[in-house]
Simulated assay, not measured.
Amino acid sequence: MTVSQWGIRVPARKGEEMRQALIREGALDASLRVLRDGESLILPVLENRESAEWCEFEAHPDREPLPRHELVGGIAIMQEKDPEGAEKLLASRPSLHTVVFARGEVSGEYRTREFTVLAGMPTTRTEITEHGHRFAVDFAGAYFSARLSTERQRILAKVQRGETILDMFAGVGPFAITLAKAASLVVASDLNPKAIGLMLENVAQNRIKNVLPMLADARRLGGILPWKFDRIVMNLPLAGTEFLPEAFLLCRPGGTIHFYSLVSQEGEHAARIRELGGEILAERVVRSYSPGQWHAVYDIEVKNE
Rank of each mutant, 00 (worst) to 15 (best):
A59F: 04
A59S: 15
A59Q: 15
H60G: 10
H60P: 04
H60C: 08
P61Q: 01
P61M: 05
P61G: 09
P61H: 05
P61W: 05
D62L: 14
D62R: 15
D62M: 11
D62C: 07
D62H: 14
R63E: 08
R63V: 08
R63H: 14
R63D: 04
E64N: 13
E64D: 15
P65G: 08
P65D: 05
P65Q: 05
P65M: 09
P65N: 03
L66M: 12
L66C: 02
L66S: 10
P67D: 07
P67F: 04
P67L: 11
P67R: 08
R68E: 12
H69V: 01
H69Y: 08
E70Q: 12
E70A: 04
L71M: 14
L71A: 13
V72R: 02
V72A: 12
V72S: 13
V72H: 09
V72K: 04
V72L: 09
G73N: 12
G74M: 05
I75K: 08
I75S: 03
I75Q: 12
I75A: 07
I75R: 12
I75P: 12
A76L: 10
A76Y: 13
I77G: 06
I77V: 15
I77M: 06
M78L: 01
M78E: 01
M78C: 01
M78R: 00
Q79K: 10
Q79S: 14
Q79W: 12
E80I: 04
E80V: 13
E80Y: 04
E80D: 12
K81A: 05
K81P: 00
K81Y: 02
K81C: 13
D82Q: 00
D82Y: 02
P83Y: 09
P83V: 05
P83C: 11
P83K: 02
E84M: 04
E84L: 14
E84Y: 01
G85S: 00
A86M: 07
A86E: 04
E87D: 13
E87N: 12
E87L: 12
K88C: 00
K88G: 11
L89A: 08
L89W: 06
L90T: 01
L90W: 08
L90S: 05
A91N: 15
A91M: 07
A91E: 13
S92A: 14
S92I: 07
S92H: 06
R93F: 14
R93L: 13
P94R: 13
P94S: 12
P94Q: 10
P94C: 01
S95P: 00
S95K: 09
S95G: 10
S95H: 10
S95Y: 04
L96W: 01
L96F: 03
L96N: 10
L96G: 00
L96S: 06
L96T: 08
H97E: 15
H97W: 07
H97P: 03
T98M: 11
T98Y: 10
T98C: 09
